[in-house]
């Protein structure tokens, strides 16, 4: 009886070890995407005491998260703009850094919907931005489309979305 108990415990430990090894060598795409987006949020955050070279360096490091033809459509109060291409987006990122305020970006919620072929994904994120000198925390919901290029997941499209829609809804005719 005691021997059986030890065997069961050993088997369970072995199964747990196998599961852990499997998840390390073959990570779940959802986990990879979430990790990558959190890294991107960290790269997009910056502090005002960064020098010009550091600003340019960290802004350029953001480029690694996007495809060259990325399209970012922002539709928020006061800003209606579409960035077409990675270069234009990086210029925008650099301009934000030069505004000289601390910016901390976090993504408290990330929902990943993988395509059946697992080479692309639609991702809903809640972005939270804290700007130095501002009391309010800015919340923004975004829909991202990611594509797998070789082993990396790159952002191909970003657009703002809203849970609460307030536009008129035309009745069905």
């Amino acid at each position: 009886m005691k021997e059986w108990t030890i065997r069961i415990i050993l088997l369970a430990a072995l199964a747990a070890l196998g599961f852990w090894a499997w998840s390390v060598f073959y990570p779940n795409p959802e986990k990879i995407i979430k990790k990558r987006l959190n890294e991107m949020a960290k790269a997009a955050s910056h502090s005002s005491d960064q020098g010009l070279v550091a600003q340019a360096w960290t802004a350029s490091s953001l480029a690694a998260y996007f495809t060259p033809d990325v399209e970012v459509t922002l539709d928020v109060p006061g800003v209606h703009h579409t960035f077409s291409g990675r270069d234009e987006l990086m210029q925008g990122a650099l301009a934000v850094r030069r505004a000289g305020r601390n910016l901390t970006i976090r993504l408290p919620d990330i929902k990943v919907i993988l395509a059946p072929d697992k080479t692309s994904a639609e991702v809903y994120v809640t972005g939270e931005a804290r700007v130095s000198g501002e009391k309010e925390v800015f919340l923004q919901e975004l829909r991202l489309r990611l594509t797998k290029v070789k082993r990396d997941w790159l952002i191909k499209q970003v657009e703002t979305v809203k849970t609460l829609s307030k536009g008129p809804l035309a009745p069905a005719t």
Binding site: P108, D109, I110, K111, Y124, V125, T126, E128, L139, E141, R143, V161, T163, L164
Partner: peptide, 14 residues
């Protein structure tokens, strides 16, 4: 409390 599209860590209170 209305949760957002991406999840429930942030929500609207309305």
């Amino acid at each position: 409390a209305v949760r957002l599209l991406a999840g429930g860590h942030r929500m609207y209170l309305k």
